[in-house]
Write a protein that binds this DNA or RNA. Structure first.
Length: 666
RNA sequence: GGGCGAGUAGCUCAAUUGGAUAGAGCAACGGCCUUCUAAGCCGUAGGUUACAGGUUCGAUCCCUGUCUCGCCUACCA
């Protein structure tokens, strides 16, 4: 109904402009007045007209107000129009009417269907434990998935696994050559780690790999020049063997990366994050995706063979905005196939993205890999099961990848466009975000040596190679321990299991909200002090508001649904019209869907987080000001209960979109 | 050198994409628990939106220039 009112208003203004001044306006700007008391909509249109009509904005506004009153009489749902400020037109609506439709709103308003959207997120190299940076990625991605699904889209979730890359190779080198383990010993280690379970943090396989990866990276830099040369060549031989597949080194790599991958899935599952499909680089290589893509790229002329300059002997492609008409070789061109015939990462990525849009003419094999309570996660394989869901052929894609990769991402889009797939290129979104770094203080707390230069910086970049960073499970453990301490103190009458569950829900709420409240372009300078905060603009603050709302109904004797039903049949026109503190909550419910659309439009989940927080603030305000259960006036009590009910409903919905649950108690 | 992003209160961040008095949270100070839970609420203080011009009814936002910081820019992935 909110939408309909906006539309009616827009049309009325257009009509008036047309008939009175013969003016057609492109986009009619509609805003919200700075104060609730000023109304629901604000139109700055008079400012724009001032020049055309050659009159003061305020006069135009006054004139428009007169005409709007005639055009939109009270029975249309509009209550008042007035000229305000230097020439704004403020519009009030009949609050009770809008509130009534909101009270009766059913949760599933969006129809299923629409284009198939593919979201790729997480994509952690399977050679070490996940860290805070990966958490930002996965939480942003998972939230994007949730809000896309909330608007009725069919969404497939993919987690790309680079299981044949240099990072995996490094850990393989570490086990085989630095530690001198046999493949059998590595298998035994993986098995014993799995037997210990994920609770034995430091003995987890991904934690062992974390430490080993740092050691190997250092090992490459140490020793005599001759040793370094040997170690480097060991590294590239290993990488090459892994890429080839089938040989023993490749099998070892596969076992290591698969073991780490399983742990990543468990870590993310703690946060309520799941996947549908895990495409792996090994299949992209061995199913000859690249060969097909290479042929298509050559055919379309996107790739050309460089015969002079520094890239002689390579297949290269012009960068977006690059290239020149001169005879000179384009030194800035992106190398896709090296002079030794091997393909670069961007090349493989182009092949993968052709597959995503169903443009490659080849498909993965699929087999089941991981079971969630409500669905199966599939993984790519050479020979798969005959029955499997369809994961490619998307109409639109979102790649949740940090901002440092915007260059290669742009190359992939460029390739698609030049190959003639403009439609696909237009529906390719690099959902970019800045990294999570550590504050110098946080780094010092973790026991890392912070150099003189770093100490004055705002943040220090994490580095897997240096083993420098905060591991995801360690952070979750810390958060859970902190929330459990509080929960134990606050909820002594509840069982240990109940308290643990509540503490975990709050910990997840804190973490997920923390990662979402920053806009994507903001580097998060991570600090335990901020992340472990449960007051103010945090997830627990919002959860607490919802828990309070629910407590009211626990003691009131009626359910939120009954409260809303009772409200919808009562005449409460006056009560709501003059109560801005209650109306704030109803209006926020009304603006939820437009907000969600804006969130998707701008691909900025921070908008959602903020909206949710503001609603929680408004509810806490309301909660403090009105004592509901002791209210003696029956009608007033109904109004208050219904307001609490709609707040609870909205908070629950918004939190759910962010992957945050409302605990039983706090 | 080139490309992208950022610079807003002591700190961390917002600002409906050009609108009304630039807002929140921390931190500081002062209040509020016999109430549906104080993980809460109220109040005070805190600003030349990096700097200089420009565009217009109107600029934190757009344009130009300058300064500072970060990232990217390899036949690494």
């Amino acid at each position: 109904m909110y939408r309909e009112l906006q539309q009616q208003l827009t049309e009325a203004v257009r009509k008036i402009l047309k008939t009175s001044w013969e003016i057609e306006i492109g986009e009619l700007v509609m805003e919200q007045p700075p104060e609730l008391s000023m109304g629901e909509f604000a139109l700055p249109v008079a400012f724009e007209l001032a020049r055309k009509v050659r009159k003061a904005p305020r006069l135009i506004a006054t004139e428009l107000v007169e005409k709007l009153r005639a055009e939109l009489p009270p029975e249309t749902g509009f209550a008042a129009f007035e000229a305000a400020g230097a020439g704004y037109i403020n519009v009030r609506i009949e609050r009770a009417r809008l509130a009534r439709t909101l009270a009766l709103e059913t949760p599933s308003r969006h129809k299923a269907g629409g284009p198939h959207i593919l979201v790729e997120h997480t994509s952690i190299n399977p050679n070490k434990a996940a860290h805070v940076g990966h958490l930002r990625n996965a939480i942003l991605g998972d939230t994007l998935v949730r809000i896309l699904r909330a608007t009725g889209h069919r969404v497939g979730v993919q987690n790309y696994i680079d299981n044949t890359g240099v990072q995996v190779a490094d850990v393989v080198v570490g086990f085989l050559h630095l530690e001198g383990k046999s493949p059998q010993e590595i298998d035994a280690l993986i098995e014993s780690c799995e037997a210990l379970g994920v609770q034995a943090r430091e003995e987890r396989f991904d934690y062992i790999c974390w430490r080993l990866y740092a050691r190997v990276s250092q090992w490459y830099e140490e020793g005599t020049e001759e040793q370094q040369r040997l170690r480097k060549s060991l590294r590239y031989e290993t990488l090459h063997a892994i890429e080839m597949g089938e040989v023993e080194t490749a099998l070892v790599a596969d076992r290591i990366s698969t073991a780490v991958l399983r742990l990543h899935l468990l870590t993310m599952q703690r946060l309520g994050i799941t996947y549908d499909f895990l495409p792996r680089e090994s299949e992209i290589l061995h199913l000859k995706f690249w060969d097909r893509a290479f042929a298509l790229l050559k055919e379309s002329g996107v790739l050309y063979y460089e015969t002079s300059g520094k890239n002689t002997g390579c297949w290269v492609m012009t960068r977006p905005g690059g290239g020149s008409a001169t005879e000179e070789p384009d030194e800035d061109a992106k190398v896709i196939v090296r002079s030794n015939g091997t393909v670069t990462y961007v090349g493989k990525d182009i092949a993968y993205h052709l597959w995503k849009f169903g443009l490659l003419g080849a498909d993965f094999g699929y087999r089941k890999f991981f079971e969630y309570p409500d669905h199966t996660c599939w993984i790519s394989s050479m020979t798969g099961e005959s029955e499997h869901p369809n994961f490619g052929g998307a109409g639109a894609i979102y790649n949740v990848i940090d901002a440092r990769q915007s260059d290669p991402q742009a190359n992939v889009v460029q390739a698609l466009r030049e190959m003639g797939h403009a439609e696909s290129a237009d529906h390719y979104t690099h959902f970019s975000y800045e990294m999570v770094a550590l504050t110098p203080r946080c780094a010092a707390e973790l026991g890392y040596h912070v150099g003189e230069e770093d100490r004055s910086r705002a943040y220090i970049e994490v580095s897997g190679r240096k083993g420098f960073g905060v591991k995801a499970d360690d952070l979750l453990d810390k958060l859970t321990a902190a929330t459990l301490k509080e929960t134990d103190a606050r909820q002594p009458e509840r069982s240990g299991a109940e308290r643990t569950k509540i503490a975990e829900q709050i910990a997840i709420g804190a973490l997920r909200y923390f990662m979402l409240k920053f806009t994507r372009s903001s580097v998060i300078a991570f600090d335990f002090k901020d992340a472990l905060s449960f007051e103010g603009e945090t997830g627990p603050y919002v959860q607490y508001a919802a828990v309070r709302a629910r407590n009211i109904f626990r003691k009131s004797g009626i359910s939120p649904e009954q409260a809303l039903d009772a409200f919808s049949t009562m005449d409460l026109v006056q009560a709501l019209q003059s109560a801005d503190d209650l109306w704030a909550i109803w209006l926020r419910a009304a603006r939820r869907d437009p907000m969600l659309e804006a969130t998707i439009q701008s691909a900025e989940p921070a908008t959602l987080a903020r909206y949710c927080f503001q609603l929680a603030q408004e509810f806490n305000n309301f909660y403090h000001k009105h004592h509901i259960l002791t209210e003696e006036n029956e009608a007033r009590r109904t109004l208050l209960l219904a307001t609490a009910a709609v707040a609870l409903r909205e908070l629950t919905t918004l939190l759910q979109w962010m992957g945050i649950e409302v605990p039983e108690a706090m």
